[in-house]
Every structure is written in structure tokens, then in C-alpha cells.
Design a protein around this nucleic acid. Sequence first.
DNA 1: TTGAAAGCGCTAACAC
DNA 2: GTGTTAGCGCTTTCAA
Lengths: 340, 340
Amino acid sequence: MAATLKDIASKLGISITTVSRGLAGYDDVAAETRQRILETAAALGYQPNLIARRLQKQRTDTLGFIMPTFGPRFSDPFFSEFIAGIGNEAAEHEYDLLVSTHAPESEEEKQAYARATQRGWVDGLIVIRTRENDSRILHLHEHDFPFVVFGRTDVPFEYPYVDEDGVAGMQLLVQHLADLGHRRIGFIMPPAGLMFSQYRLQGYYDTMAANNLPVIPEWIVEGDLTQRSGAEAVKRLLAATPQVTAVICGNDLMAMGAINQIQQDGKTVGVDIAVAGFDDIPSSAYVNPPLTTLHQPIYEIGRQTCAMLIDIVNGRTPENQHALLTPTLIVRASSGSSIL
Amino acid sequence: MAATLKDIASKLGISITTVSRGLAGYDDVAAETRQRILETAAALGYQPNLIARRLQKQRTDTLGFIMPTFGPRFSDPFFSEFIAGIGNEAAEHEYDLLVSTHAPESEEEKQAYARATQRGWVDGLIVIRTRENDSRILHLHEHDFPFVVFGRTDVPFEYPYVDEDGVAGMQLLVQHLADLGHRRIGFIMPPAGLMFSQYRLQGYYDTMAANNLPVIPEWIVEGDLTQRSGAEAVKRLLAATPQVTAVICGNDLMAMGAINQIQQDGKTVGVDIAVAGFDDIPSSAYVNPPLTTLHQPIYEIGRQTCAMLIDIVNGRTPENQHALLTPTLIVRASSGSSIL
DNA sequence: TTGAAAGCGCTAACAC
DNA sequence: GTGTTAGCGCTTTCAA
């Protein structure tokens, strides 16, 4: 059994309090006593019991991240990188990270959020993949529970977030394609229920309009962010409107699926048809042809989100409660050259 | 402030003990009293304080996963899928998952493991990416701390693990290439310090020998599991020994990098040179050409590892302490057709 | 059927 | 400087 303060105290014949203070480095402990305490603690291999300390301090020094997972074959590289970002930032400030995996919108997910606002689980929460009028954010706000969101949602109150500027990102991308001479540009959008889909869609509409390009409803199809759905979506899209000369995909994974499908149909991506993605996951530079996409610094976003949460948990007001980062356009071969 | 047992008790004018028992569903509480307790608890929005309960129970109902992370651009899809697997299994058994990110072999990582064996952090630990004579496993074993490993290592004692059979996997893959007529097969191996590299290398050697194929040291180069390193490694490999007709990569990410590099050099993968990977990440079916690889059910491995740990944490002996799963060969276009 | 009391391991206000 | 005491919120003997 592991040693406790009591063990040290009784071994030394002094009180638990003194031991506690000696270990904590208070200066009202005699240097000599302190020395003996330290020695005995080391000898006994004393390690403070975190739970006891947490009960006393009324804080867990733990941050929570409820990760939306889908089926078994769920492995979006986004999450590895995001977790690495928040995890490293948390570790740096001596916070633990509790990760809870649940299907989005599920009953379990609801329970997880209910649990979070319960005391003694985590001190604060990171929310991602926001949805319209996001019930999770509503819940956290109602319970006055500390949280930071990666993404925005349309709720009638203030809340701290970090987000990509999806509108600006799409603006860069659509403009790039328009400049190459494309006039019929399709869009495989991410699930409509996700807020970032709305912004990306908005950016698409805006920039098409700004270039006096028409937008036909058939040019827009929806995917679920996986490669497989990208392949299926592009099939539907091209079957319905073969005259499309460029396809923007809501994320790189879908773009990879779309490219694969187009190639299977015997067309050459970057020549017969331009394809672009969103995210700039590491693979996107290595697929064939390399993918034109919008770069998002996921790791940095994770860090920043976490840093903001740590501020809030500690009662500090973050300098900037709303960080909006503009993605960078990365032009590679998949968007081809001018078709004018 | 959240409601406590005390609040309910004083509101009802009964003792804390009775409230506790009523809520816990003990049958020695009068039905009517129980009813009133339940109602008041609901009215007050009572949620048990987890820390207090944990202190009392002397267990955290939390499992730990110390994730080896590398630089910022770290986003191996493996981890997303693995975490989803352990996370979902943990959630099903009402365990929380604590994820701690650290650079492998770092001082911080050591501290994290030291912390783990401290009481009150987690009840058990999942270890992955084993290394030779893995100090983490040594540490956990010495402290008699519950853990399960994904991977094996060479320590002189028994420990529970789930692992892929890397030797058998490579056997399938090398044989496939040999059957296609390849005689000069290069190997971009994963970092030599990782145990799975050893097994994969062993399988490569064994099967080359079984087919009476020579192995030249120059045919083997090392990568660090990223796409970038796959590209660099294949460059080195082909510069040193251009006569190689097939290249096996230690994982799919490196294979993607290798394919890209080969294509940049103007060669056709699957025709001029065969390439294969290991893991069967979702992307591997969608790259161009699609990747021949060995399928590993990462999600299932995660689940199984976690299930085993939960057994151990609860003092049950898992049926099978050593699970060895043979990867499945997935043949796609990157390995081409017979060159005989 | 209910309550009083102890205790999980720690910290902190206060007294000596 | 050091010890006494109380208390964080809960569970669990043991009495009543």
C-alpha cells in the first residue's frame, strides 16, 4: 500500500499538518523538521493522493474533450492532430485531458454533457464540430460551466471560441478556380447540420456570385466527410451535371475519394476536371495528383483552444474571446492550370 | 452551487446516511422515504460528487492512455481510430479515459508513468508502440500496476498484451510479391527502436529466405512512419539500388510518400515498380494507385485491449492474456501484376 | 427502518 | 514552529 501523510507523520512522531506543510514548502516549518520530512517521504516513496487533494481543493485539474465518433472505421487524422494540440497545451499547464467518445447527437453524448456539468468530473470542456443552435453549448451555458468551442454556432449569447474563417477560405479557393477560367464549379459539401458546412457553403455562394457565376442546385451535393462518401458524391454530381469542370470538396478526405472515383471513370484530375479540398491534412500533399486545398493549422488551433479554456477555468478573461483564423490557400496539381 | 446529500437530507429532515442509501437503491429504506428522497434529489438536480465517491471507493473508474506524440504535424489516423476503439469500450463499461500526450522516451513521458503508478490518477493504463526492453513496462510491472499493452516487448516476465502478428503479416506480403515474380524487394522499415519494426523485419527476412531470395543490406532503409520520410527513404533506396523492383513500406503513410516520390521521378507505380504498405488505413484504398497493404483492425484492437484492461482492473483474469492477430493481405493496384 | 459516527487523504484556519 | 480541529462529499459499519 502506498504511503500517506499519516504514515510519514507517525513514523516521525509529528502531526500530519506539519508534514503537509513541510512537503508543500511552507516556510513556517523548521528547516530541520522539513529535512526529515522530505527524507522520510522519499524513503517511503510518498506520492500525494490526487483524489484526496481534489476533493479538498474542489477542482479536478482536468479538462474534458467529448469527441464525436462515428462507426468503427472512424479515423479522421484531424482528431489525432487536434488531440495532440490540446493534450500538449494541457500537459504544459499541468492539466489532464479526459477524452470521452460518443456518436454525435446520441443519447450517450447528452449524458456525457450532463455528467460534465456535474461537479468533480472535469473543470472545463472543449466542444468541437458545432451544429446549428447547438444543444451542447446551450446546456453548458445554462449550467454556467466553463467551455471553449472550436467552431461557432447561432446561440443568442456570448461564448468563447476559436474558429476557422470558412467563408474567407472558400473565397480564396473559389476565386482561384474562377481565375483559372472555371465557370461551372460543383461543391461537395460537408453534412448540412454542421456549422462549418454553412460557412463554407456561404463562401462558395458569395464568391460564385462575386464572379458572376451561376449556381445551380444540382452542383451542390452532400457528403459525410469520409473518402467513401466523397467518391459517391462526385459520382452523383457528375451523373447529374457532367458539364461541371471543377469540384470543391468540403474536406480533404472527401476530395481523396472524389479523385479516386474520377480516375476510375477514366478522367484525369487536374486536366479533365479540377478538384480541391479543405483542411490540408498531411496526406493531401502526397496523393496523386497532389491536392489543392485550404490549410488549417489544426495543432495550433487545438493549443489555442485549450489555452483559452485554461484561462477561463482559472477565472482569467482571455485576451481575445473570439479567434477567427483564415485558412491559407495551397495550390497543387489537382486544380490544374488555366482552362481559358 | 450544486446540491449534495447533505442538502437533500436537511431539506427532508432525515440523515445523510438514509439519503445515500435511498439513492443507492438499498432495500432497507422505507418505500415512502425512498420516494421522497428521489423526488427531492430530482428537484434539486442532485448529481453525486465523483471525487468524493472516488476517495471513498479508492478507485477512479478511469483508464489512462499515454499517447506518444511527435511534432506539431503529427496526425497519424491510427490514433484517431485506436482512441475511438478504447474510448467506446471504456464508455460502455462506464470508465473514463484519460489521455496524456508526450514525446516518446522523453522525461515528461517518464514522469507521466511515474504519476500513473501514484494512487488516484487512473486505475489502469494502456501502453502502445512498444520498444526494446520497454522501460515503461518495466516500471509498471515493478509497481504492480494494472496495464495492457498493444504490442510486445522483450522483458523477462509475463504481461497481458494484444498484438498484430507482424511476422505472419509480412510473410503474406513478401510471398505475394515473390509470387508475382519479384526477386529484389526493398523494405522501408519503421524506426528500429520500435518492437513492431523488429517483427516486420523478421517476417521480411524469413520470407525472402524461404523463397531463396537474397537480402542485401542496401535494400533496407529506415523511415519514421510519416509520408515525408517515406518519400525520402525511397529516394535513398532507389539511389543506392535502382535494380529493386518492389518496395514494401513499414506503414501506409510511408507508402503514400514513397508512391508520390516515385511518381515524381517519372515512374509508374504498379508497373515499373511495385509498392506495398502496412495498416490499411482508410486512405490506402483511395490513393492512386490504390495501395496493396496488410489490414489491421485498429478499432477492434483498441476495444479488445481496453476490455482486457477492464478485466484486470477488476481483478478478473482475462481468458486470453496474449492475443495475436494476423493481418489480412489486401491486394490492390500498387503491387501491379506478375512481372514474370 | 433509520441515524450516528468513522474514515477515505488531504488542506487550511486557528490556536498554542 | 507545530498541533488541533474541521471539513471537502461520500459510503459503510454498527447501534438504536
